[in-house]
Design a protein around this nucleic acid. Structure first.
Lengths: 196, 196
DNA sequence: AGAAAAAACTAATAAGTGTTAGTTTTGTAA
DNA sequence: TTACAAAACTAACACTTATTAGTTTTTTCT
């Protein structure tokens, strides 16, 4: 018994999950093979199965870990006493921070979820729909309370979430644009626009 | 000789391309098989090769057709005599319109380009970088000419392009949110924000 | 050291991959 | 009708896929 630890404090399964996320990100889930993953982990493909159930289980783990992470956070924000605009701002900042810290996993959850099998696919989409609803309710309450102009809350939610998702393209130019500038500018543009 | 026409005015190659775009969109390039595509076209897999060169050529055709379409449009906008803010607005509206009209192809170009082989991958990324540069220059000139607040032009460009790309999620709720509302609201939010 | 469990290995399976060769059918033009 | 080309077909090739079975090595605990 006794989980073998690779590295500091991470089980071998966690190592595999992390490398899988990185591989799925760069090659996409379907184009990534278990042999390739095994190579990266430094083991034969069949040995992976001592630690994981299947390839699709890897995808499930990545997607749901990320999904619940976001869902949990938005519940916290919901119960805070901030104004609605502040709640939206917090959502945007959390997205950017989480994306910067867990890039591979967030990327995979955003892009490869469609390869989930049922019932996981449905479950995942429900999580996402839930999350979207929460953000929309911030916008709608904000309109009611005169913090926000009268806009279509669905479009505003879509615009915000799409914009933050776009951070995946930022990766490359980390040096040129510091995270703080990106975060502040994006929040500002989404809430206040860019015109004078 | 004599191109056999399927449908009205479309060659068989065009039919294949269109169905390939739809298939690549829903299953992703790697997970889509030529036998599957053949089924949809109504033919045996090997027969496809009377009309196309290879699977990867299909992806190339889709990506570059879309890429040049956007590049061409932004060149036109560049040469117009509109203000910079108007130019940006035109870009956003063109994105939304093109996305609504050619959804499959735009989606594939946005998501599956990474499966392009060299030298096409490099070429495609150059097209995209070019496009991004043009949009950035609208923003920068807009700042110089006091139309636009002092923002980081890279972040603003990223925010705009990411937001419009997010239209892929809109598809489903076409009925609830008409295209005009979406277009106007998105332009408005990206340029003027949503706060009061 | 000896026992037990964990995790690695080799080898194989059955199914699926893009693509080609060779052949037959279909459609067009003389 | 005869000729020719376009486009369909069947069959096969050479690989790659995820995964399992069975075995051996490594690690851990007593």
């Amino acid at each position: 018994m006794a989980k073998i630890l690779t590295g500091k404090n991470t089980s071998k399964k966690e190592v595999i999950l992390q490398k899988a996320a990185s591989l799925f990100k760069s090659k996409s889930y379907s184009a990534a093979s278990m042999r390739e993953l095994a190579d990266i982990v430094g083991v034969e493909a069949s040995s992976l199965y001592n630690h994981i159930g299947s390839k699709s289980e890897l995808l499930q783990d990545i997607c749901f870990k990320t999904g619940y992470q976001f869902l949990e956070q938005i519940e916290k924000i919901k119960n805070s006493s901030n104004s609605n605009v502040e709640k939206i701002e917090t959502v945007i900042r959390f997205h950017i921070k989480t994306m910067a810290e867990n890039f591979d996993e967030v990327y995979v959850a955003n892009h490869e979820w469609k390869h989930l099998e049922e019932p996981y696919l449905t479950d995942f989409l429900n999580i996402r729909r839930n999350y979207e609803k929460s953000l929309m309710s911030f916008i709608e309450t904000g309109i009611e309370e005169k913090e926000i102009r009268l806009v279509n809350s669905y479009v505003a939610m879509l615009t915000i979430l799409s914009a933050v998702r776009g951070l995946e393209f930022w990766q490359r130019s980390k040096k040129n644009v510091p995270l703080q500038v990106l975060e502040n500018d994006m929040v500002n543009q989404l809430l206040n626009g860019i015109t004078k």
